[in-house]
Computed example of a mutant assay.
Amino acid sequence: MWPNGFLNITSRGRRSESQVYLTFDDGPDPRFTPSLLDILAQHQIKASFFVLADACAAYPELVRQTAEAGHDIGIHSYSHAHPWRLRQAEAREELHRCYHTLANITGNPPSLFRPAYGRIRPATLQEARALQLHTVLWNRSVIDWGAWGTLAGVSRRLAALKPGDIVLMHDARPDTNRPETTLTALQSFLNTDKAASLEFSGLSHLTKKRFRN
């Protein structure tokens, strides 16, 4: 049975508004996250980062740098273990450990949660609700991994963004080293007229309106 309030999940913003929500998973990564932060700062864009707590523990200054730049930082998991392959207690603990790691590093409790691999289950939704987290998925992925994660492919999918899109991207990948392609495609896209016609916001802009605990 799904827990009460499980519908407090969103995967898309409002088409009637101009905002696009860029989100980046699996960081922080000292090879790629600093360059991404520079790109976002150059274009005065706020984004949302869903981080792995084991990486946060290794690079706490990078987490603080991201927060101080005004970006949203949300929970992804502790180790990126697949939620469906864990016992309920283990799945809850992945979320719980990430929550407290982030709170200790930034000095502020996180408010956003995206499950690893986007796979939801009642145990983690219950834990997220207990921690007063808003669960956010996505409706558009640039598919910046695997055989489709080419520069041409990522660039084409970025060019198709529409208002209201929550966009899945990566500034790190546990299983590949492709974020340099993402950064190149993103920098090129943000210099286009299409990007100039959009307004980019962090997810807190959306969740503060949509969710009421």
Score class of each variant (00 low, 15 high):
residue 1 M to E: 13
residue 1 M to V: 04
residue 2 W to T: 01
residue 2 W to E: 14
residue 4 N to H: 06
residue 6 F to Q: 11
residue 6 F to A: 12
residue 7 L to M: 10
residue 9 I to M: 08
residue 9 I to C: 07
residue 12 R to N: 02
residue 16 S to A: 12
residue 17 E to T: 13
residue 18 S to A: 15
residue 21 Y to I: 04
residue 21 Y to Q: 03
residue 21 Y to G: 00
residue 25 D to S: 05
residue 26 D to N: 02
residue 27 G to S: 02
residue 29 D to K: 12
residue 30 P to D: 04
residue 30 P to R: 06
residue 31 R to A: 14
residue 33 T to H: 05
residue 34 P to G: 09
residue 40 L to I: 06
residue 44 Q to T: 12
residue 45 I to Y: 08
residue 48 S to Q: 02
residue 49 F to T: 08
residue 52 L to T: 03
residue 54 D to V: 13
residue 54 D to Q: 15
residue 55 A to Y: 12
residue 55 A to D: 11
residue 56 C to Q: 06
residue 57 A to I: 09
residue 58 A to P: 03
residue 59 Y to N: 12
residue 65 Q to T: 13
residue 65 Q to A: 15
residue 65 Q to K: 14
residue 66 T to S: 10
residue 67 A to T: 07
residue 67 A to K: 11
residue 73 I to G: 07
residue 73 I to R: 06
residue 74 G to C: 00
residue 77 S to H: 05
residue 77 S to A: 15
residue 78 Y to R: 15
residue 82 H to C: 02
residue 85 R to M: 05
residue 88 Q to G: 13
residue 89 A to Y: 05
residue 90 E to H: 08
residue 91 A to C: 09
residue 91 A to W: 05
residue 94 E to A: 06
residue 96 H to L: 12
residue 96 H to N: 11
residue 96 H to A: 15
residue 98 C to F: 04
residue 99 Y to Q: 02
residue 99 Y to L: 03
residue 100 H to N: 09
residue 101 T to N: 06
residue 102 L to G: 03
residue 102 L to Y: 02
residue 102 L to T: 02
residue 103 A to I: 00
residue 103 A to K: 15
residue 103 A to M: 08
residue 104 N to S: 15
residue 110 P to E: 08
residue 112 L to I: 00
residue 112 L to Q: 00
residue 115 P to R: 07
residue 116 A to H: 11
residue 117 Y to P: 01
residue 118 G to I: 03
residue 119 R to G: 08
residue 120 I to C: 12
residue 121 R to Q: 14
residue 121 R to E: 11
residue 122 P to S: 09
residue 123 A to P: 04
residue 124 T to S: 15
residue 124 T to L: 14
residue 126 Q to K: 08
residue 129 R to Q: 14
residue 130 A to Q: 12
residue 132 Q to K: 15
residue 134 H to C: 11
residue 136 V to W: 01
residue 137 L to G: 05
residue 138 W to M: 07
residue 139 N to L: 07
residue 140 R to D: 00
residue 142 V to Q: 04
residue 143 I to A: 06
residue 146 G to S: 09
residue 148 W to F: 10
residue 149 G to V: 07
residue 151 L to P: 03
residue 152 A to Y: 11
residue 155 S to E: 13
residue 156 R to Y: 08
residue 158 L to A: 03
residue 161 L to N: 01
residue 162 K to Y: 06
residue 163 P to G: 05
residue 163 P to H: 10
residue 165 D to K: 01
residue 165 D to H: 03
residue 166 I to Y: 12
residue 170 H to E: 06
residue 171 D to Q: 13
residue 174 P to K: 10
residue 174 P to L: 09
residue 174 P to C: 10
residue 175 D to A: 12
residue 178 R to N: 09
residue 179 P to C: 05
residue 181 T to H: 09
residue 181 T to N: 07
residue 182 T to K: 06
residue 183 L to P: 04
residue 183 L to V: 03
residue 188 S to N: 15
residue 189 F to N: 06
residue 190 L to K: 02
residue 191 N to Y: 05
residue 193 D to L: 09
residue 194 K to Q: 13
residue 194 K to A: 12
residue 196 A to Q: 14
residue 201 S to G: 01
residue 207 T to C: 10
residue 209 K to P: 00
residue 210 R to E: 07
residue 212 R to K: 14
